[in-house]
Design a protein around this nucleic acid. Structure first.
Lengths: 150, 150
DNA sequence: GGTGAAACGGTCGATCG
DNA sequence: CGATCGACCGTTTCACC
């Protein structure tokens, strides 16, 4: 849990993770070393797990985005799903979920053919029974990143 | 579109956006100024849209994550969905999609009660006809962030 | 938390492969 | 294109108040 100052620091970093500590200090009203101490502490406690780049998938040639719901065979552990999906560079995020499906996977592909190929390969994984997928029409918001780099 | 060197630079930044250009150069086999020139170019062309922080929602007190599928009333534009959802700090990402639902919204809440409150408020938005939601059990992967800060 | 100083990294132009 | 060098300046980082 964080106090208000920490939240404002995280917010400043969420907007631009390469801002200098002095800049952030100006925004939140602290000196640069004070900001650094707090950021160090936030990293040590695990509230901040790292810094990453924000990319435009289209500019990178990843024009097609979609979500694939995975229905697994019995007795599939989250770890094996993770291990199975990690080999796909097209997979941006994945979570196990409640409901009918077992996992939701976010995929970026260069085009529809590429997406279809990825879908077929994932559907062919030994732990996958069937899939259901939707395509993203337009991304409306994208606020921050959570979790650890994988 | 990028060549392989650019992709490796983006990958290095995706792992740690605060790495120095010299470090990245070591990884990809270039000098620091060469890396900087390429990163500058990637930003100029819009392939890289910024840098952001990677947070642990749990450490920030956001223990409950879920996806809400939104079924809209007729004639709802993506823009009005976006405007409607922007007011929720709990919404991390949102996209319009193909399929039965009109949009998929990723939500972080402090606990189940909080999630339920957000769900009810979103379900009560004038443009929302009904919703369907799933809870995230465990996040398996989280690779990068796309799009612009909102 | 702030201050000040030293070490480090970013940035630029010039020059060469 | 990229490497390397030198120079300048901002940033990070640390010991200390």
């Amino acid at each position: 849990m964080l106090n208000e100052l920490d939240e404002r620091i995280v917010h400043a970093l969420a907007e631009d993770a390469r801002r200098s500590f002095a800049d952030i200090g100006q925004i939140v009203g602290l000196s640069a070393p004070a900001v650094k101490r707090r950021v160090d502490r936030l990293r040590a406690t695990g509230a901040i797990t790292g810094f990453t780049v924000r990319v435009d998938p289209a500019a990178l040639g990843w024009e097609t985005e979609g979500f694939i719901e995975i229905y697994c065979r019995r007795n599939t552990s989250p770890e094996s799903i993770k291990r199975g999906l990690e080999r796909y560079p097209e997979v941006a995020s994945a979570s196990t979920v409640t409901g009918e499906a077992d996992a939701i996977v976010q995929v970026f592909a260069s085009d529809m053919r590429h997406f279809e190929r990825v879908l077929e390969r994932i559907a062919g994984e030994h732990f996958v029974e069937r899939t259901k997928s939707v395509l993203v029409l337009s991304p409306l918001m994208r606020r921050f990143t959570s979790g650890a780099p994988t």
